[in-house]
Computed example of a mutant assay.
Amino acid sequence: MKSFLILALLYLAYVDWRTFRLPNVITLPLIFLGIVFNCVSDLSLTSPASALLGGILGYGSLWALNAGYRLLKNRNGIGMGDAKLLAALGAWLGLHSLPTILLIASITGLIGGIVWLKWNRHNVGNAFPFGPFLAFAGIIELLWPQLIQTLILPRLI
């Protein structure tokens, strides 16, 4: 199942990079499959409760962030496809994985955003696909769980 999740994430990253869209036809079933997989499989990646809470809080956190941004700027700051992708990652990998995924995606997205702006000569107000960085962070968390906590944080402290 890890291979299935990685392929789905790579596909979503590619689509978002090219179209600035994360299709519901992929993200919504991915949320459902993550919860079901963790409820019925002997190879589950997290507990059923953590999968359900990961899905809810994955979506809810980016929804709340966007709602706050919309109140300040009167426009969306992040697409809800990104929120659905984070919900899918939370459903597959559990609630505990969300902070690490968001940290990795934010750092790589910041670096990627700077490169994107320089390469395409855009200004800061232009849209930028965040889904590829969420997918990348999800793959890292899937293959090397707790990488930040075990390898990087102890060296920083």
Results as ranks from 00 to 15, higher is better:
76 N>M: 01
106 S>M: 05
108 T>V: 10
108 T>M: 01
63 W>N: 01
13 A>D: 05
48 P>G: 03
24 N>E: 07
28 L>T: 10
104 I>C: 05
117 L>Y: 00
18 R>D: 01
22 L>V: 15
81 G>Y: 03
102 L>F: 11
122 H>W: 13
27 T>N: 14
122 H>M: 08
94 G>E: 04
44 S>Q: 10
37 F>R: 00
84 K>V: 03
58 G>R: 01
78 I>E: 05
35 I>H: 02
106 S>D: 01
15 V>S: 02
109 G>V: 04
94 G>W: 00
116 W>C: 09
72 L>K: 13
25 V>A: 15
41 S>P: 13
103 L>I: 15
91 A>R: 11
67 A>C: 10
63 W>G: 07
35 I>A: 09
120 N>F: 13
40 V>M: 04
20 F>Q: 07
9 L>R: 11
41 S>A: 09
57 L>A: 13
28 L>Q: 13
64 A>L: 15
115 V>S: 03
119 W>G: 00
96 H>Q: 13
93 L>W: 02
37 F>H: 08
92 W>R: 02
42 D>G: 15
88 A>F: 12
27 T>C: 02
52 L>A: 14
26 I>M: 15
41 S>G: 06
96 H>I: 12
83 A>I: 03
90 G>A: 05
25 V>D: 11
23 P>N: 12
83 A>R: 08
123 N>R: 13
47 S>Y: 07
93 L>Y: 06
24 N>Q: 07
119 W>A: 13
27 T>Y: 01
57 L>Q: 01
90 G>F: 01
117 L>S: 07
67 A>E: 13
10 L>G: 12
121 R>T: 05
24 N>R: 12
98 L>G: 01
117 L>D: 04
60 G>P: 07
72 L>I: 15
53 L>V: 04
81 G>N: 05
58 G>F: 02
113 G>Y: 05
84 K>P: 01
71 L>Y: 12
48 P>E: 06
70 R>N: 11
105 A>P: 00
76 N>S: 13
124 V>G: 14
52 L>Q: 01
12 L>I: 14
105 A>I: 09
101 I>P: 00
88 A>I: 03
114 I>A: 13
116 W>V: 04
41 S>D: 03
72 L>M: 11
68 G>I: 09
27 T>H: 08
64 A>C: 14
98 L>W: 05
108 T>G: 07
57 L>I: 12
48 P>R: 00
70 R>W: 14
120 N>V: 00
65 L>T: 08
43 L>D: 15
64 A>F: 15
8 A>S: 14
75 R>K: 15
25 V>S: 15
42 D>I: 09
19 T>L: 12
74 N>W: 04
43 L>R: 12
89 L>G: 10
12 L>Y: 07
74 N>L: 10
58 G>I: 03
28 L>M: 14
124 V>M: 15
57 L>F: 15
25 V>K: 14
43 L>P: 06
114 I>K: 08
81 G>E: 08
29 P>N: 08
58 G>H: 07
71 L>E: 11
107 I>H: 05
34 G>A: 10
114 I>H: 04
123 N>W: 09
104 I>E: 01
122 H>R: 15
18 R>K: 14
84 K>N: 03
77 G>P: 02
77 G>I: 09
123 N>M: 06
33 L>V: 12
36 V>C: 08
98 L>M: 08
100 T>C: 01
34 G>H: 07
99 P>N: 05
107 I>Y: 10
9 L>S: 05
64 A>Q: 06
32 F>W: 11
62 L>Y: 09
76 N>P: 11
108 T>C: 11
96 H>W: 02
